[in-house]
């Protein structure tokens, strides 16, 4: 198979370049990550992140033939050649396919991604009804791979001010949690022309989410909650 991969080494390169590779996948190489790891045995200077190799850790997010996805979940069968691999769009490149996710995680931290409950804790856990627990489905599964935020035009143009689809999905995960008591504060923080309302419902986020989640739906729900709050 043929691959064309974005290469950049900050210690030797002034600007990025594309490097072509020829690779013969072996039996058992099913996913793009398998091919990349085989390539690494040929060219050990090629850099990319990977860990769990099964779509749980979210490390190997990259731009694959123009669309964001996880290398470990992308089957080799059906990939158009040459397979063009680039780092996540709009993120500063550290080296090759590795991007700097500092700002992405700063947005994640800003929405306080943890349960806030100022009531006295019960002796055992805080219980939820099955219906209350059901509301978290489609939200808690996010693995923070950044496929969505780095495919969002609004995030490209305002990466410092717009929280982005990943952060907003996580924000809604806690807004909709029956055990959380900080809903009003969370909504007040999001009620901002940039933080939430830079979303233009383009839905690139939902298009590329490798976990099949819908950040655009979560954003819609936050907007509706804000309307209910103000009426």
């Amino acid at each position: 198979m043929r691959l064309s991969i974005y290469r950049f080494n900050p210690e030797t390169d002034l600007k990025p370049r594309m490097q072509d590779y020829e690779l013969a996948p072996e039996a058992g190489d099913k996913k793009l990550l398998d091919a990349l790891m085989r390539l690494k045995t040929i060219d050990d200077s090629l850099s990319f992140r990977r860990s769990c190799r099964e779509g749980v850790c979210g490390s190997d997010a990259m731009n694959i033939n123009g669309r964001n996805g996880l290398a470990c979940l992308t089957p080799l069968v059906g990939l158009k050649e040459p397979v063009v691999l680039r780092p996540l769009p709009g993120f500063p490149v550290i080296r090759d396919l590795i991007v700097d996710m500092t700002q992405f995680f700063a947005h994640y931290h800003s929405i306080k991604p943890y349960l806030i409950n100022d009531t006295v804790p019960p002796e055992r856990e805080r219980l939820q009804s099955p219906a209350e627990r059901e509301k978290l489905n489609g939200l808690y599964e996010c693995i923070l791979c950044a496929c969505c935020s780095s495919f969002c035009p609004s995030f490209w143009w305002n990466p410092d001010k717009f929280i982005g689809p990943a952060g907003l999905l996580q924000a809604y995960r806690f807004i909709s949690d029956s055990r959380d008591t900080a809903t009003a504060e969370r909504l007040a923080y999001l009620d901002d022309v940039y933080r939430l309302f830079r979303c233009r419902t383009i839905m690139n986020c939902t298009e590329v989410c490798p976990k099949g989640l819908s950040p655009s739906h979560a954003i819609e729900r936050i907007r509706q909650a804000l309307v209910r709050e103000s009426s």
Partner: peptide
């Protein structure tokens, strides 16, 4: 640090 953001090399969904 460079950024990859060449819009002509990104495959946009219909939306």
């Amino acid at each position: 640090a460079p950024k990859f953001l060449n819009l002509l090399q990104i495959r946009f969904p219909i939306g």
